[in-house]
Write a protein that binds this DNA or RNA. Structure first.
Lengths: 237, 237
DNA sequence: CAGTGGTCTAGACCACACG
DNA sequence: GTGTGGTCTAGACCACTGA
C-alpha cells in the first residue's frame, strides 16, 4: 500500500460513514475489508481515528455503528465544577456507573501529595460517567478517610466527590491545580470506558487544596475525546 | 495470549528498558519478539505506550533507543507565552525547524473565525519546535496577511508568531481562547514530528483576540506527550 | 550493501452478544 | 449456534540509515 493510499482509504471510509444514517450498522470488518481491498488489520487501523473522533462506536459481538450528533460537554477550566453540574447547566443528563469505594493504607504517593503519615487510612472513589448510555469519563479520587464517610457519600444526591466536599461547609476549598495530558488507555481504564486498550484519552490529574494550601484530594480523570470540549482563556503575557 | 499476559509482557519490557543506560540501543524488533515469545506485531503494540511516555525513541533504519531523563517544559496556562519564552525561563534551549510560510486565499474557516471577506489574503505559518534535537511540538498559525510581513518575520529574532505580534505595538492583544483536546497524529503531523501515524498528541486550538474581541490569529498546536506539562489553577465554583 | 523500523497480508482463534 | 469485534501470528515487502 502506497503512502497516500492509506489517506484515500480513510477518505472513502469517512464519506461512507458520514453518508449513512445515525445508529445504522456498518458491514462487518471482514466484508468491509474485502470491499476496500485491504486486510482486516489495515481496515481497523484506518477506523481507529474515527472512533477517537466519536464518529463510530464498536461493540464486541454486535457490530460497528454510526454515531450521530451527540451533545458535547463544553466547560471552561477556570472554574472547578463537577461534571454533573456542568452537564446540568446545558440540560444534559449524565449518570454514574461502576461506583467503587475502597479504603486502603496510604502509599508513597499519598504521603507525598496529601501530606499524610504512613499508617493513616485513605479512601479511593472511582466512577464512570455516562451520557446517553455511553461511558465518557472515568474519575478516580483519593482523599483521607477522615474527610468522607462512605455511607454519607453513597446516600448523597450526587456521586461527585467535589459536590460532597462542598456540602461539608467546614472545609475551605479554594482551588485545584490541574495538570493536562494526553495518554493512551491502559487495560483497566479501557475496560471501564468500554474502549480498546491503546485508545486515546484526555487526562487530568488534579490536586484540590483548601485556602491554607493543604491538599485535600488528588484526582485522576480520563475523558473520551469527542465528547468534551475543555477550554481556557489565557491572558496575553 | 491471555488477557493478563499482555500486561506481563509490558511489565517485563518496561523493566528491561529502564534497567538499561540512557541512549543505549535495544535489540532489533524481530530479536526482541523472539526473546519475548510473541509476534513482532504484538511487541510493537506493547511498545507503543513507551514511546508515548517518552521512554523510548524509534528511528527507522537505525534502531530503538532508550531515552534518559529529559527536561519537561512546564507551563501554566493562565498566561499565554511563546514556547521559546517558557523554555528560556527554565534555561532550556529550543530550536525551530521546517518553518513554512504560505499565503493563500481565505477559506470558510477563516471567514467564520477571523471575520474576513472572501478574496482577502491570509498567511499560514507552520513550524516544528525541537529540544535537544528532538521534535516535540508542531505549531500552525493562520492570520490576515496584512498583519504580518514575511520578510520582517523571517528576519526577526524569534520564530514565534506571538512574539512577533507582540513586538508590533499597535495591536492590542488581550487574550486567547484555547481549546484542549487529545488526538491522534495524522500522516502529515506524524511526518513533521517524526512519529508514527496514529500516535497520541495533546492538541490546542486557540483564537487570539485583541481587546475589542476581534480574533487576530487562529492557531493549532500539537504537542508530544511526555515533554510538556501544562497545568491550570481552577477556582472552586 | 546489510540491518533497522514501518506497513500490510492472510489466516487463525478468542470473547462476546443475541436469538 | 452464528456472527460480531478483539487479538495474535508468521511472513512478506518497503523505506530508510549508515557503513
Amino acid at each position: 500500500m502506497g503512502k497516500e493510499s492509506f489517506q484515500r482509504l480513510q477518505d472513502s471510509l469517512r464519506s461512507m460513514i458520514t453518508s449513512r444514517p445515525a445508529e445504522s450498522r456498518l458491514p462487518s470488518e471482514p466484508k468491509l475489508a474485502k470491499q476496500m481491498g485491504v486486510s482486516r488489520a489495515t481496515l481497523r487501523e484506518a477506523m481507529r481515528s474515527f472512533e477517537t473522533e466519536g464518529l463510530i462506536r464498536r461493540k464486541q459481538g454486535v457490530g460497528t455503528f454510526v454515531i450521530g450528533d451527540f451533545p458535547i460537554i463544553d466547560a471552561g477550566m477556570e472554574k472547578l465544577e463537577s461534571i454533573e453540574k456542568i452537564a446540568g447547566r446545558i440540560g444534559l443528563n449524565v449518570s454514574t456507573e461502576s461506583l467503587e469505594i475502597q479504603q486502603m493504607q496510604v502509599d508513597d504517593e499519598c504521603v507525598r501529595v496529601l501530606g499524610l503519615k504512613v499508617g493513616e487510612s485513605i479512601t479511593r472513589i472511582s466512577r464512570v460517567i455516562l451520557t446517553d448510555g455511553r461511558p465518557v469519563a472515568y474519575l478516580v479520587d483519593t482523599l483521607p478517610t477522615s474527610l468522607i464517610s462512605m455511607s454519607d457519600f453513597e446516600n448523597g444526591h450526587s456521586s461527585s466527590v467535589l459536590d460532597f466536599l462542598l456540602q461539608n461547609g467546614s472545609l475551605n476549598l479554594a482551588h485545584s491545580r490541574t495538570e493536562i495530558k494526553a495518554s493512551i488507555a491502559s487495560g483497566e481504564v479501557a475496560n471501564k470506558l468500554q474502549i480498546q486498550r491503546g485508545d486515546v484519552l484526555l487526562n487530568f490529574s488534579a490536586d484540590l487544596s483548601d485556602s491554607s494550601g493543604k491538599v485535600i484530594d488528588r484526582s485522576y480523570s480520563y475523558f473520551l475525546p469527542g465528547y468534551f470540549s475543555f477550554h481556557v482563556n489565557r491572558r496575553v503575557g
